[in-house]
Design a protein around this nucleic acid. Structure first.
Lengths: 143, 143
DNA sequence: CTCAGTTTGAAATTGAGTTTCAAAACTATG
DNA sequence: CATAGTTTTGAAACTCAATTTCAAACTGAG
């Protein structure tokens, strides 16, 4: 089931309404490859849809996270970022602390070890966060 | 070199002063086993040292992080937490999203794979964050 | 179409984190 | 030990992302 359907079904089951704004925000969000903060997505939307308010963008992103089609990320810069959730291939992040570049990586062996650790403590894992901070190639060359 | 010495040396090299408040906060912080937020440590300190202000606790915790004797943690509850940094055995966290319990774990094989991933992207890693969220034994039994 | 319930967006509020500033404390020097 | 020159402290103010408020606009079941 695609993410648009997941979202619409979530709205229905929660007794919420499908609105023009929500659909526009969903579309823009899914098209975005970047890791947008609420503010950034709001600025992007403003270009084509200047009447959509910040509060609506914020509330809609929370809905995306609630129904599982988005993941909330926190890279320690004081802004929550969102990315479309890909159940197919889960990935984690390399974050350059100098230029802000974000590289996604996939490492199934780490995922496997995580499950092993959780089992060790009889812990039921729902989600995880795994980020490596440092310098990307470009930034480790200069300075 | 112990963490008290590291801190004092850091103060000296930065031209900062060793004060009664900083020493009290350091002592209390190092004694704490928990993962305190600024607010929580401030409340704890207030019991024995009601005249130490919130701003001082905050500034001192930042100093701890700067000189490497503390690590800033962010579990997504909107509060930054600090824990004494153990260079000896690095560890990551299992966070129970129901009762808030935090379990520390060590898994050198994950650390090793991280280095491998970083190399893959010519990325120089300074630090990382790795947290598994879910239910601890106790909380997965009830409800 | 109608109407109750929901959503919207501008503005206000919240709260963690940070900064300000005058008074207090610290350290090196006389 | 006294003094001068910095730094620190703590209360209060400020910042800024996140969240809430509320009247007007919208949605969708009937």
């Amino acid at each position: 089931m695609d993410r648009v359907s997941v979202f619409n079904q979530y709205l229905r089951t929660q007794g919420l309404k499908s609105t023009r704004q929500r659909m526009i925000i969903l579309e823009t969000f899914l098209d975005s490859k970047s890791h947008y903060s609420t503010e950034e997505l709001y600025q992007l939307l403003r270009k084509d849809h200047p009447r959509i308010g910040y509060a609506t963008v914020h509330r809609t992103l929370k809905l995306f996270a609630e129904c599982g089609i988005a993941i909330e990320l926190n890279f320690g810069d004081g802004q929550t970022r969102f990315e479309p959730h890909y159940t197919e291939h889960h990935h984690d992040h390399l974050v350059c602390t100098r230029c802000g570049k974000i590289i996604e990586f996939v490492e199934p062996r780490i995922e496997h070890l995580q499950r092993e650790v959780a089992e060790r403590y009889d812990f039921t894992v729902d989600s995880h966060r795994h980020e490596l901070y440092g310098r990307c190639v470009r930034c480790s060359q200069d300075s």
